[in-house]
Design a protein around this nucleic acid. Sequence first.
DNA 1: GAGTAGGTACACAGATCTGTATATGCAAGG
DNA 2: CCTTGCATATACAGATCTGTGTACCTACTC
Lengths: 199, 199
Amino acid sequence: MPTDSTERETEELTPGAQRILEVASELFYRRGIHAVGVDTIAAESGVTKRTLYNRFGSKDNLLRIYLETKDRRWRELVVDRLGSENGDPRARVLVPFTVLPEWLTESDRGCSFVNAFAELPERDHPGNRVIRAEKQWLRRFFHDRITEAGAEEGAASTLAVQLLALHEGAIVSNAIAEVPGTVRAVTEAATALVDAALA
Amino acid sequence: MPTDSTERETEELTPGAQRILEVASELFYRRGIHAVGVDTIAAESGVTKRTLYNRFGSKDNLLRIYLETKDRRWRELVVDRLGSENGDPRARVLVPFTVLPEWLTESDRGCSFVNAFAELPERDHPGNRVIRAEKQWLRRFFHDRITEAGAEEGAASTLAVQLLALHEGAIVSNAIAEVPGTVRAVTEAATALVDAALA
DNA sequence: GAGTAGGTACACAGATCTGTATATGCAAGG
DNA sequence: CCTTGCATATACAGATCTGTGTACCTACTC
């Protein structure tokens, strides 16, 4: 069985399936989920619709894999950068902000997860679960790094939520408000909040 | 001609049209724009599809009016609360945050504008314009109140962008991350940033 | 050399979408 | 009284959507 409902890793996908996933990711992100049909995805992948269904089973499943893949890439980027930030504990807290400039080069349409959330109201939809898990992961990332930096529990919880909101807002308002220097300004705010909490 | 493409005010709508607008607002917000058909909107409004088209002309136009109405209500809420906040200039800056608890009682699915933005990629779509104008308005609101509080231009611009991001993030992560106390924590962060900038 | 994996080509079912056409009912205001 | 505004009922056009059925092709592997 090459394709069951719990698709494992991107590397195990056939070349055709990888192209489908790449094209679908771009289209879902740029045009929206419901606005993109499987016919379009198949055509732009240079593949027949039959192949798409043979590889992914359904549009919903393809959507879930799209979100899981994006989630994995985001976590890898953050964790990877964390590895080369062994010095200042405060800099480690701020890694999700310092990676934003490169992350946003290919994400000028806002946050993939927030956008998908707008189109996936049902909490038990697989995609909805992935989205909420992603935000929980980031909040916990902040919380753990803040704790490592020496803050006590209460302060860490509060600061984690504040940084999460600031981070979301940076991506979203960077796309919608289109104010130059948004990322820089928001990163400064995050730095100020961290410094104040760890003072 | 009762219904041209530049519908004036909500008060001028017929009772049927008002019901349609209310139902459409709820459905667009809770289920998404593309996921809701005009048949559903008409049925839930207790109205025929013909009436919907006679009153609003098209789904796109109804969508635009939905966004404009939400925008107007938000601005009115903020400006209204600003009127009863004549004392501390810093409290005036923070009005968009202090109204959040009541605004979010009926908005647990994130920000209407951010959600709609996810489904309206084209910049020249009327709805897209409304959304971007709304964010610009809020940023300018922050900027003007900060300036009134005595900050100089550079600091006001930076702080306005920071508060805008924090504000967006509060609404979005309140809906997705579902962490209790998000609004309170974020408002504290906003207060800290304002205090630091005006020190 | 037979089987299998991956893909093509193409038609089609069945649902749903936006928008329109046509004919009718009813109540208020001139 | 009778036009006009607002709504109803119902059918339909035409497009698009997800998903399937069927038959064929090709290359690699056992």
